[in-house]
Design a protein around this nucleic acid. Structure first.
Lengths: 346, 346
DNA sequence: ATTTAGCACTCGGAGAGGTTGAGTGCTAAC
DNA sequence: GTTAGCACTCAACCTCTCCGAGTGCTAAAT
């Protein structure tokens, strides 16, 4: 059943009001709006129909109406405008580009902090799973007889290193041979193809030295780290600003829930999705504390290797229109920044 | 004026009770304790004297007493026992040692998370200022004609790197020369002695290449990062568990306050202090939201180069005895772990 | 001199009405 | 189809009372 234009206008006005005030909206308040030239009685009739259709609900008999999740959904999909960002908004969003940090993890975490400050909501950022990443180059740098630094460079520009200290002296020549063998054997293949069998090839070709053990261990750690998704929560205290979470217990429940990555299996499927800003409302987030919360999120790409997620968490009563506009612009900026930093340095 | 043994016992019992229950403690409750063989009237007299001395206070006329900050101070300094940790405690604390992360920042952040989980309090961790650190070795690794990775190794084992992409091709020989010059000119001195003048020496010796500009920029970033103190807040939501912070607004105020490093000038002076666990109670934390909160903290050392801080934040009603015992053990573990990781790898 | 029993007093908290007012649903008139 | 009118509902708020835990003080007991 298609909604009449008037119903849509009324619904939009109610949701807009509720988003601003967090108070149930009554028929009189709506009727007094200049854009609605009808009496409160008419509005009441329409509201009662909207309620029947599932777009509105009443907290109790003699209160005004509040939007239901379905109502928000409709609002988000059809009703809300896409407000122009102000120059100030755009300025502060462009400040992403000034992020000095050049390490992926920290860049993501800083980006989350920025959005949180920008929007006054709690943000959630998830780093991508990078199993398809390949190693481009190894280098072992002798620092002293016992100290070495190993460096790996991946095709997407991520660099990792570690200081290794061997128990027995290893010569620079031995280190150089090992570097050569590593480059011959383990580069150009996805990291999940680095199997024990392949490590054996290295072992045979380079000979077992005190260094090799440490190097193998480092490679294991590296693979593990790359296959790990990290989650950053920023601006947790912002959640407490909203009347929906004035009850500390509720807030704690939600915060605990979202700070545990294992609770966020949904995030994993999200990341496989298409570009652009997406919104999940209340029960769409499954059961658990998130069913009374909403999320506005976007993805970012690390080349073709992986895709991470960055988003805003808050009460279902969110200013979806403004938030999604901001997040869209922000994620575009972040994508550009990552591309420049990791693939195209200046 | 010295307190009688009985007064001390009463005060200790009251504080212990209050720490457990968060309820004002009355004379009857104390009198019924087996260790106090006096009537409630006697206890009342003593309590009233303790109040006069400033160790107790009344929320209102007809409630029991609660400890004042001075009371907590006395408790912490003289009265509280130093409970033995249970085997389970020790086990979980020793799990620090299993931290796989070998980067300082993340190690500190993970350690904070661990303590937070262990104690059910919000934790605060601050990385040290490392201005006295010296660079031990540079290495520039050519990846392609345009891509290079620069690596610095410091005397305390911290390694940093960055991928650099030049606009115009640079030969491997040029890169090698630059590496040599950097090692000649900038190693072995504290990083705050790397002045523009010294960078000029490098510039003259190595010749200005496309690479040099990027390298200089990287060194600047490195110095900046080393001179920066980073603050990690973990388990923010734990704060909401305590009845003292059931009012979301109060909790938010405190959280905001402690997540802003600029609000924590105190932390800087703390880090200059001696080893061991320290406790600051209520107003001892200066004005601002922390004056109703307490902090139990310890320091950790990065060799002789810097000293960081890790601590617990919560209501003044904290289980100081248990927390300080745990934190003491934990910080010992963390210190050992850092020593092993950065100076003594296995 | 110290301890204790007894008692009047205080005050926050919980519970019971009572009132208010915003808001609804329905009906009948326009 | 729209609107005015009216009875009805119900959370929020206020006030009042009562209750009990806890205090301070005094006088008796040890």
């Amino acid at each position: 059943m298609e909604l009449s234009a008037r119903k849509k206008l009324i619904l939009k006005t109610i949701i807009g009001d509720y988003i601003r005030t967090a108070e149930p909206v009554g028929s009189k308040a709506i009727a007094s709006r200049p854009e609605l030239g009808f009496s409160s009685a008419t509005i009441r009739n329409e509201m009662s129909e909207l309620e029947e259709m599932g777009y509105l609900q009443k907290p109790h008999t003699s209160a005004g109406r509040i939007p239901s999740p379905a109502g928000y959904r409709l609002y988000v999909d059809e009703l809300m405008g896409h407000p122009d960002l102000t120059a100030a908004d755009i300025d502060s969003i462009n400040s992403v580009m000034k992020l000095k940090v050049k390490e992926l993890d920290r860049m993501v975490s800083e980006a989350g902090k920025l959005i949180s400050n920008l929007t006054d909501y709690t943000t959630l950022a998830v780093t991508p799973l990078m199993q398809r990443i390949t190693i481009r180059k190894f280098q072992i740098i002798p620092v002293s007889e016992l100290d070495f630094v190993i460096v790996v460079v991946t095709d997407s520009g991520v660099v990792k290193n570690k200081m290794l200290r061997t128990a027995t002296p290893v010569t620079a020549d031995e280190a150089e041979l090992l570097t050569y063998v590593l480059n011959q054997t383990l580069t150009g293949i996805p990291i999940d193809a680095i199997t024990p069998a392949r490590m054996d090839i290295v072992r045979r070709a380079a000979g077992v030295t005190a260094l090799l053990t440490l190097v193998a261990e480092f490679i294991g750690e590296f693979i593990e780290e790359m296959s790990e998704q990290k989650l950053f929560l920023q601006g947790a205290s912002k959640l407490l600003t909203y009347p929906e979470y004035k009850d500390a217990h509720k807030a704690q429940e939600l915060l605990d829930f979202i700070s545990d990555e294992s609770n966020m299996p949904a995030l994993r499927t999200f990341t496989r999705d298409i570009d652009g800003v997406r919104i999940t409302i209340g029960p769409e987030n499954g059961s658990g504390p998130m069913q009374n919360a909403s999320m506005v999120y976007a993805t970012y790409n690390i080349g073709s290797v992986g895709r991470g997620l960055i988003g805003i968490v808050g009460p279902t009563r969110m200013d979806y229109a403004r938030l999604s506009a901001r997040l869209a612009l922000f994620s575009k900026g972040l994508n550009r920044l990552i591309a420049e930093t990791f693939f195209d340095e200046e």
